[in-house]
Computed example of a mutant assay.
Amino acid sequence: MSDAPPDETRLAAEIERLKAEFPKTRELYREVCALLFFRHGITPTANRLYQLVKRGSMGTPTAVLGEFWTELREKSRVRIEHPDLPADLQAVAGELVATLWTRSSTAARDALDALRDEIEVQRGEAQRAVVAARDELARVEGALEQRTGALLAAQVEVRELEKAQAEGRAQRQALEAELERVRATLAARDREFVEVREGFSRDLGKQRDATERAEERFRASEKRALLEIDRERSAATKLQKELDEATHRAEQKDADHRRASETMQAQLGDARHQAGVLQGRLDAVQAENTRLQTEMMTLREAETHARETRASSESAGVRKAPRPTRSPRAVPTAKPATRRKKAV
């Protein structure tokens, strides 16, 4: 028999179950003897039985244990009865079969003990594998939590980028609307300038007819008018040049804005900075437009002054005595300075 102690917890649970099934003390001791000897491979003793059951007096487990061994020997003894065999041969044959049965039982118990040991080893390995699997599961869960946190951070960053992109798109649309308004304003100013130039050409034709009829009387006035026209032509040329430069700058600003819009889609982080740059350039265009408007008003005032000067000169010439007539000469005509305005 194996002297290795069984699992005390399992043994105690089985004895408690037997106590519930066998309320009589002697029957309970008999079942505990069978449990220890046949199931767990433990040789029962009176002290061991009493420690496990804890019922009755010490004589009860001793008496039950004696009955158990007597019954076990009776059951293990093999009787061979045959009419042709002598009585002594029958006893020897019975002892031989009993010995064979005992040895086979011992061998079976040894095999069972080896199997139990192997199972215990496998159980230990399984427990270690379970612990390793739990550690791996904890590591995987930690990595999953880290990846989940990184994913949540990436989602937050994506939402922030989408928000910044929406803000950049709104700013770009606002800048495009402002640029269209500036273009419309410059186109209106261009049309107004063309109308002013045409009116100036008509007025200049009238003045040329009057100058041809009174060349000698209005020579001094003509010189002043020519000087005034030259100044106006120079101012108009300068204004045209500045307007062309402003148009060129506006086109450059438009190109810069388009490049900034394309760059904004790839670099959302620079969207606000680019919007600020475009806003500054737009303010510069508005300031330039304001300056051009001021210069245009100055040009109109100069034209009004020239008209008043010519009118006063004409009225003064009528009051003077006419000089000897001469063949009229062609007076050089001052052509108005032509300007082209490019749409911004």
Rank of each mutant, 00 (worst) to 15 (best):
176 E>Q: 09
167 E>K: 03
85 L>Q: 03
193 F>T: 14
163 K>C: 04
85 L>A: 02
174 A>L: 07
160 E>P: 02
145 E>Y: 07
142 G>D: 12
162 E>D: 14
151 L>W: 11
88 D>P: 08
147 R>K: 12
186 L>G: 05
149 G>Q: 12
153 A>P: 00
163 K>W: 12
185 T>A: 14
168 G>Y: 00
144 L>W: 07
175 L>T: 06
131 V>Q: 07
194 V>W: 07
182 V>W: 04
176 E>N: 05
142 G>C: 01
176 E>W: 03
95 E>H: 10
179 L>C: 02
155 Q>R: 02
149 G>R: 14
132 A>H: 01
125 E>H: 13
91 A>V: 14
103 R>W: 13
172 R>A: 15
89 L>M: 10
123 R>H: 14
101 W>V: 15
171 Q>T: 04
120 E>I: 06
120 E>L: 08
106 T>E: 13
173 Q>M: 05
182 V>D: 09
80 I>R: 03
89 L>V: 12
144 L>I: 11
166 A>R: 10
99 T>G: 14
141 E>S: 08
188 A>Q: 09
109 R>S: 04
183 R>K: 05
160 E>D: 13
167 E>R: 03
159 R>A: 10
104 S>K: 09
142 G>L: 02
126 A>L: 11
164 A>W: 01
118 E>A: 07
87 A>N: 08
189 R>Q: 12
139 R>P: 04
89 L>C: 04
187 A>N: 05
87 A>Y: 06
179 L>D: 07
148 T>N: 07
142 G>P: 00
116 R>H: 04
112 L>I: 03
103 R>H: 11
164 A>L: 08
161 L>G: 02
113 D>S: 08
175 L>I: 07
171 Q>P: 02
178 E>Y: 06
126 A>T: 11
85 L>E: 05
187 A>M: 02
158 V>Y: 12
163 K>Y: 13
92 V>F: 09
120 E>N: 11
